Amino acid sequence: MTDQIDLDDLDVQDDEETPNRGDWFWGAEGDPEDEPEPETDGSASVRPDGAADASTAGDTDSEDGSADTSGQPVPHVPRENKDRPVGIPTASGGAGGAAATDTDPASNVAGDPAAGEEPVEASGPHGGGIDDMTMAVTYDAARQFADPQRVFQEARGWADWVGIVGDVDAFVINKFQRDHGIDADFFSGAGQEPAERLADIDEHSMFYAERMVLVGRPDDEPVAERTGWEFIPLADAAEKADWDLAGE
């Protein structure tokens, strides 16, 4: 049978109550200079900012004179308020919660618009000025070229964007590109008429340009008229650019 233990007979040591770290701020008691240092087990103590305490870190040099980098903290730029609570305004004694550029002089992070800086607005639809020219070729017209790959490669010499639109399924246009080694910037999707795709390329599209040209067969001209694109007949484009047509 286990002997009974009288709790009154136990030697209980009355520990003197000691202040906790941070009481000077959270409880408005004491002074930060009187705050107790964190207890260590002989190894380097780590402060809230991630740096090792020099008083407990020890000598890191090895016998051959090289520095022992094991257990070393990541290099950083110390902040003036590194010993203050993070997330508390600096006016109230904390480290604050501002953008990195406001507290870390080595940071190369762009200024936070919420911190008062005006964001830079792009002057064009995709970060720059409006492009000069976008050219679309109808699928029926593209099939008339003797060397479609050459046509699209040379078209990129004067057009910023080149695409294919047609009244066919998207996989048909994809197969045409794959067969001829073409990589169009845009093309009409499944169930989307050519006019719908061209109408989508407006001021908010990355393919928008000052000059919007549609190259097609004569019966494709109404598509250009409906969408406000400039129409160039296939024969005229081939003659000016010296592109051979199939069957010639």
Rank of each mutant, 00 (worst) to 15 (best):
G50P: 08
D53H: 06
D15Q: 11
S55N: 13
W26P: 05
E154N: 12
G127D: 01
A209I: 00
A114K: 11
V46I: 14
I88H: 01
L234A: 01
W229Q: 01
F207M: 10
R156A: 12
R47L: 12
A57C: 10
K82Y: 15
G189N: 11
V215H: 05
P89K: 10
N81R: 14
I5N: 02
E230P: 01
G94E: 03
D53E: 12
P105I: 01
G58P: 10
L234Y: 01
S70R: 15
T60M: 13
F171E: 09
D167S: 12
G216Q: 04
M133K: 15
D131Y: 10
S107G: 03
D202Q: 04
D140Y: 09
D200Q: 13
E17K: 15
Q149T: 07
I5M: 03
A141S: 06
R143W: 04
A106R: 03
V46D: 00
A209R: 02
Q192S: 11
D64G: 07
A237N: 10
R21S: 11
T101A: 15
N20K: 13
I182C: 09
A106V: 04
P148T: 04
S107Y: 03
R79W: 02
A28S: 11
R47Q: 12
D31V: 03
E193A: 14
E154C: 04
D49F: 06
H76S: 14
S62E: 11
G127Q: 04
P148K: 14
F187S: 13
G247K: 00
R226I: 14
A98H: 11
K82F: 15
G27H: 11
A190F: 12
P233V: 02
V162L: 09
D9P: 01
L234C: 03
E117Y: 07
M135V: 14
V109G: 08
Y139I: 00
W243D: 00
W229G: 00
P218L: 07
E17G: 09
R47Y: 13
D131T: 06
P36A: 02
